[in-house]
Design a protein around this nucleic acid. Structure first.
Lengths: 137, 137
DNA sequence: CTGTGTGCAAACACTTTGCAGGTGT
DNA sequence: ACACCTGCAAAGTGTTTGCACACAG
């Protein structure tokens, strides 16, 4: 378990520390994207700033990606193994208006957009809002 | 000028007040989406709270729409005349990483997404990030 | 007179930075 | 000894609410 976590960190050139292992552990178990405040609550006693910097490090090393889902705070989720966070790697996210969960719809790639002339694409943030299968009766 | 502004407000069932006229004026002249702090700076002396509530009113009456562009703050822009803020009315937005402007690409509708079973769509927020034509050399 | 709009102040939520002490190599 | 990681504190940014007064119908 811990070994796998460590390997994942190392494979992304992140020095494995206790804190980072724990955070990655949580992110791995978490099926939906999580925000910084939510992550903080997962721990008895953890420092916002440390978590913040940990997430930042993870993001810089393409271990996780962030989603601006319109809920007022950024959310983070593990990248797919092969992900390079390029436009072609991006997928759609889904924010449930009822339970507030943000899902990675990893199977649904972001559709290609034809931008106006001289507009250069770098990345895309696409969030669908609605009701998820759990909250739908 | 003022007459048109007023008519627009009335057509959306918003009582025309001095403040609202000014705000709508600014939004009309503004080619790109604007954030609350930015809007505040457009005026010599204006109250955040009032602007905030004005925008909220505008939004509730479908005069403007808001975009979560990932810049950390919400941005607002005028709706098209026929807009009902339904999923089929939505268009793509473009955030320039250089100048920070957010453009409404009103001509580019948000592509239709096939959600997983039992996921119900309500709205879509799609922001493309990159370099705009002004900043591109 | 009543309901709505405005301005000021303050609370709030989340993010970000500075600094000092700790840890591992 | 050095580079990096962590924890505490505090500042920063943007959003939201409470309250009292102004204003128009």
């Amino acid at each position: 378990m811990k070994k796998e976590i460590d390997n994942k960190l190392k494979s992304k050139n992140i020095k494995p520390t206790a804190m980072r292992e724990l955070v990655l552990q949580v992110l791995t178990e978490q099926k939906t994207a999580i925000s910084l405040p939510e992550l903080e609550q997962k721990f008895e006693k953890a420092d916002k700033a440390t978590l913040y910097r940990t997430l930042k490090t993870f993001q810089e090393n393409k271990l996780i990606h962030s989603i601006e889902d319109g809920s007022g705070s950024l959310r983070y989720a593990l990248c797919q193994d092969a992900c390079q966070c390029h436009p072609e790697d991006l997928h759609v996210h889904f924010l449930c208006a009822v339970c507030g969960q943000t899902y990675c719809l990893s199977d649904i790639p972001v559709p290609k957009i034809n931008l106006p002339a001289k507009f250069q694409l770098e990345s895309v943030n696409m969030v669908v809002k609605g009701t998820c299968s759990n909250c739908k009766q």
